[in-house]
Design a protein around this nucleic acid. Sequence first.
DNA 1: TTAATATCGTTTCAACGCTAACGATTATGA
DNA 2: TCATAATCGTTAGCGTTGAAACGATATTAA
Lengths: 160, 160
Amino acid sequence: MPEEKDTINKLAKAPIESLHLDAITVVTNLYRAAQGLRNKMEREVLAKHGLSWTSFSILYDLWIWESVETKKLAMSAGVSKATISNITNTLERKELCYRKVDNRDRRITCVVLTDKGRKVMEELYPQFHQGEVEVVSSLTVEEQKVISGMLRRVIRENNF
Amino acid sequence: MPEEKDTINKLAKAPIESLHLDAITVVTNLYRAAQGLRNKMEREVLAKHGLSWTSFSILYDLWIWESVETKKLAMSAGVSKATISNITNTLERKELCYRKVDNRDRRITCVVLTDKGRKVMEELYPQFHQGEVEVVSSLTVEEQKVISGMLRRVIRENNF
DNA sequence: TTAATATCGTTTCAACGCTAACGATTATGA
DNA sequence: TCATAATCGTTAGCGTTGAAACGATATTAA
């Protein structure tokens, strides 16, 4: 990313009172770290099963909760329900999950993990976790607690 | 996201020595914050011009550097060169930038901002910056410096 | 010089991801 | 009851995304 100083010059013509350079730096580094994290995981762990980050996060939810409504999957993954519908189709094609219509409210569709899906998770999760550890290994455990606390506040305050 | 305790139960059958719960929390919160950040910006600022986060980050680079090689755009945005090629097509269609083949090395293509593209940036950047400020407003400036420092170390250590 | 190699950007193809529109189902209220 | 509204998941249409294959250009080595 360019230097903040360059941005200041460009803003001569833009109607802005003042630049909050620290906010810019947080946002820039936050997104870059997350992007790198996702790319690393997809390349080093998930690619061998042709799974995207979002696909994996859905499988993870199903692994933990057994059966999850489409809408809750969307909220958990932070994507639209249309995306969940598409990804569920892909995962169904791979026989990693299946749909199940709710009997009480037939508008609701639940997604359920198959045995094959469970096996994939039991193979993949330890490797995924190893990647998580590696990514944050430059931070002490104490620092990890601090950064998690701050991120959690950002998430909460913005309803993310 | 589910509780860490649930994950521990699931891992009974998985060959893993120990769970680093703090690492899990960092990664989970990091990605969720970034995801929420992107969604918020695309919805509240970029949608009115039909721009994605990546499109905007490319326009930003062009705004600062006037002319940038395709490869450098890919590295800066953290996406593949194929993606840059596609997005450049879209931006060209909107007349926000144009391609320019390098004379010295005709394999290299530079992308250049148009006047129209510059006007869009001068309108959009202040609003984007306002969003940045809002997103991190729950952190003090001192905390912003701390979290940026930690994120920067993560980025550096992983070559993100 | 010429052949082999490397680098660059684009294309191809499949999947991801959004908004908006839609059909089906349920809830509400006159 | 029956019409209206609200909610759910899917579909349509378009742009984004990456791996791999490709063509064009430049570099290297013999």
